[in-house]
Amino acid sequence: MTDPKVDLHNYLQAARDALLWKLDGLSEYDIRRPMTPMGTNLLGLVKHLTGVEIGYFGATFGRSVEFPPWVTDDAEDNVDMWATADESREYIVGQYRTAWAHADDTIRALPLDAPGRVPHWPGDRRDVTLHRILVHVLAETHRHAGHADIVRELVDGAVGLRADNTNLPAEDRTWWESYRTRLERAAREADQG
């Protein structure tokens, strides 16, 4: 049997690593370019999760930490979802790694049943434990890593779980084009009824 806290922490780290891997080999433009109608972009996902980790593993448990400038009450709406031209990749990734270190310290220091409080949550859910926050941040990080999977595929076609494991069938481009055509045909047939 393994320690449940260790398991949750390991899965969180895997999601963090997967998210950052999606930046590898891309230009500054490609990590910032909005790839969906709502503007979803790779570096913005990293920036957003920086604030998530700092907030949930910091103030929630009364642990002080310096917030990045985009995590303030008077910040512009959605400013955590994109990087300005003067916020470098190194700066955003560095802030994310600093948030990890702070979160990791909190996770190691507190038991899973340690109480915390999330002031911006509804009153009936405001009082939490480290376990609940760890599950919440784990789910949110994996959710955004999934967004990053899709965004990266849209940017340059790169896919996969990790650099050493795509977790997809090892087929060539022709096979994937045929597969996609087959799915498109099935969707159209289903729509016609």
Rank of each mutant, 00 (worst) to 15 (best):
T141Q: 15
T40E: 11
H144D: 07
F61A: 10
E28C: 04
Q192N: 02
A85H: 07
A158S: 14
D73F: 05
T60D: 09
E90L: 11
R132H: 12
R108V: 04
D80A: 12
G157S: 06
P111Q: 04
D164S: 04
A186P: 01
R152H: 02
L154S: 05
T166V: 04
L19S: 03
D74K: 15
E87F: 14
L154P: 07
N41I: 01
L154Q: 09
P69G: 15
L19F: 07
V46Y: 02
A15W: 02
L183G: 03
P34R: 00
L154F: 09
A109M: 10
R185A: 05
G116S: 11
V135M: 14
V118Y: 12
S178H: 15
D73Y: 12
A190R: 02
A145F: 03
G25Y: 03
W176R: 12
G39L: 05
R126T: 12
R180F: 11
A109H: 08
L183C: 02
K22A: 03
L43G: 13
S64E: 15
T40N: 13
L23V: 00
R108G: 05
R33A: 07
A14G: 00
G44D: 10
E184V: 03
L19R: 04
A145E: 14
P169F: 13
A14H: 02
V118T: 08
L154T: 00
L19Q: 00
Q13T: 07
R126D: 01
A114Q: 03
W121D: 03
N10I: 09
Q192Y: 10
H9E: 14
R180A: 09
P111Y: 10
